[in-house]
Amino acid sequence: MTLLRAWLTGIPAYLWSGWGAIASLFLLLAAWEGASAVHGALILPDPGTVFATLAGLVDSGAAWPELAVTARRAATGLALAIAAGSTLGMLAGISMTASMMSRPLVTVLLGTPPIAWLVLAMLWFGASDGTPVFTVFIACFPVIFVGALQGTRTLDGHLREVATVYRLPLRMKLFDLYLPHVVSYLFPAWITALGTSWKVVVMAELLSSADGVGAALAVSRSHLDTAATLAWIAAVVLTLLTVEYLLLEPVKRELEGWRRQETEGGAA
């Protein structure tokens, strides 16, 4: 409840602080407009056309079902990756041996391009939802795993001693010691993973699905409809930005209240 109130009251100040970001976005739009004027509408339609097409897609109701399907797949894969990555990463972080052993495995996972996993997933899951969900999961898992691992490993040994001498039960060790510290590592990892999931799901759909934003992109490409292609891309990017900046960023600020005070105190 306090979280919700803090979130709502935080929005105006937060938006106000975003003027710099908005200015740079307008610069980008201007550059786009310029490039469009040089290369012609077939290669690069101007922003006005693209956003009009997007508005048309939204008005006709064509955009929402596709976005919903894509969001469902991304969210499923991301949720699985968050659950598995956070738990396993923290467990691995508690044991020195486990963290040493898991590190090379995670490096391999991180280094394997998502497109390789996608091809494998298509062989294993065919055209079902399993393909994008699996690809999202496998692309997000190592990022989250590493965040949880590092968070757990970097906990100050001094504070662990405090937990020992004050005889904190296991539950308290988890919720009062490990989680508050680990969350400051985990949360950025979750946000990175969110971005990854959204990009990877579109790619997976493009190659393997009959519905969703990726499939819509494939269709508009085959019709050489550059405006619709860009409109879908804009829809994908706008959705991600909305979720990340309006929802997650304030939550993050709230979760790390103790740390924010610290930096403000430092600046004052």
């Binding site: 001094h158 504070l159 001498v165 004050y166 009062d176 508050p180 103790w258 740390r259 610290e262």
Partner: peptide
């Protein structure tokens, strides 16, 4: 027993 360490060692998030 209770221990007071050489450094305060308070939990920064509490």
């Amino acid at each position: 027993p209770a221990v007071m360490f050489q450094q305060p060692r308070l939990l920064p998030w509490k």
